[in-house]
């Protein structure tokens, strides 16, 4: 389309008509209406909203919160350490180590976490005691508390994922970096610690953060073996007063708080290890 303006006209003060976005106004209005409708439904629902804050800070709920945090952090921390070891085995020159790593990942990633938790918790049914000959021997049902079973179930499954994440991170670092480190006389361990891992972090941190957020929520599976995490805590409270939804909402609020904090933490970690 030819312009009806000439270059000289552009020097004058012309009225500029900004582009209109009717579609945005329409979709925005629809979204706001939907939200308003949901809010109205919540207000109309037969929920004792005024009871929720009390459950939020109920001593049993707080105990469940603490247990949830301890379980999630311990399982994720253990998974990271194990994951690094398995990833190094996966990348090692030793074929036995490589095969072991592949099998480990296949097994612990392949089974549902819930199933793994149940198997650990019921281990006493098939092994009466856990022992290393001549070193120690303990009865299985003493060691395998709900916490330990949940820790193993969640942690081992996560360690298989961490192994793959760490492996991807290590492989992402240019081979020239290792050569440069070697050329100034660095040992393999120092090279890993000072050169390769810090650079692999950029690749490792984002998926690890996502997995940790999943881990926080995954701890809820420990409720099936009566470990006192948030959901089990909520059930304990509501079994006395029958305010099931109110206690579940209080637990839900705690999950959102934890997940939000974890996301903020991940943001700062990513910035600390981000590209220069």
């Amino acid at each position: 389309m030819a312009s009806d303006l000439r270059p000289n006209d552009l020097r004058e003060d012309l009225t500029v008509v900004p582009l209109r976005h009717p579609g945005r106004w329409f979709s925005g209005t629809v979204i706001l209406l939907v939200i308003a409708g949901l809010g109205w439904a919540m207000a109309e629902a037969q929920i004792q909203w005024e009871d929720v804050p009390g459950f939020f800070t109920h001593p049993v709920m707080l105990e469940g919160l603490l247990n949830t945090i301890v379980l999630a952090v311990a399982a994720q921390g253990g998974a990271i350490l194990l994951g690094v070891v398995v990833a190094l085995m996966r990348l090692s020159a030793n074929p036995v180590a490589r095969w072991f790593a592949v099998g480990y990942i296949w097994l612990f990633r392949g089974l549902p976490v819930l199933l793994q938790i149940l198997i650990w918790f019921n281990l006493a049914l098939v092994f009466k005691s856990i022992s290393i000959p001549m070193l120690f021997e303990v009865p299985t049902n003493v060691v395998m508390t709900a916490f330990v079973a949940a820790l193993l179930g969640l942690g081992l499954n996560e360690s298989a994922y961490m192994a793959e994440i760490v492996r991807a991170g290590l492989s992402s670092v240019d081979a020239g970096q290792t050569e440069a480190a070697k050329s100034i006389g660095m040992t393999p361990l120092t090279t890993l610690r000072r050169v390769v891992l810090p650079q692999a972090m950029r690749v490792i941190i984002p998926p690890t953060g996502n997995n940790f957020i999943n881990m926080i929520k995954g701890t809820s599976m420990a409720s099936v073996i009566a470990f006192l995490e948030l959901i089990h805590a909520a059930n304990n409270i509501s079994s006395r007063n029958l305010e099931i939804m109110e206690t579940l909402f209080a637990a839900a609020a705690w999950y959102l708080v934890m997940v939000s904090l974890a996301s903020i933490g991940q943001h700062y970690l990513e910035r600390a290890y981000g590209p220069r």
């Binding site: 020239g176 480190a181 100034i184 220069r276």
Partner: peptide, 19 residues
């Protein structure tokens, strides 16, 4: 690694530690 301390090497693609 101990032996390599005595020999310096400079690479085509620099290979500085970027972090």
């Amino acid at each position: 690694a101990h032996q390599r301390r005595d020999v310096g090497m400079v690479f085509q693609r620099f290979n500085l530690f970027p972090h």
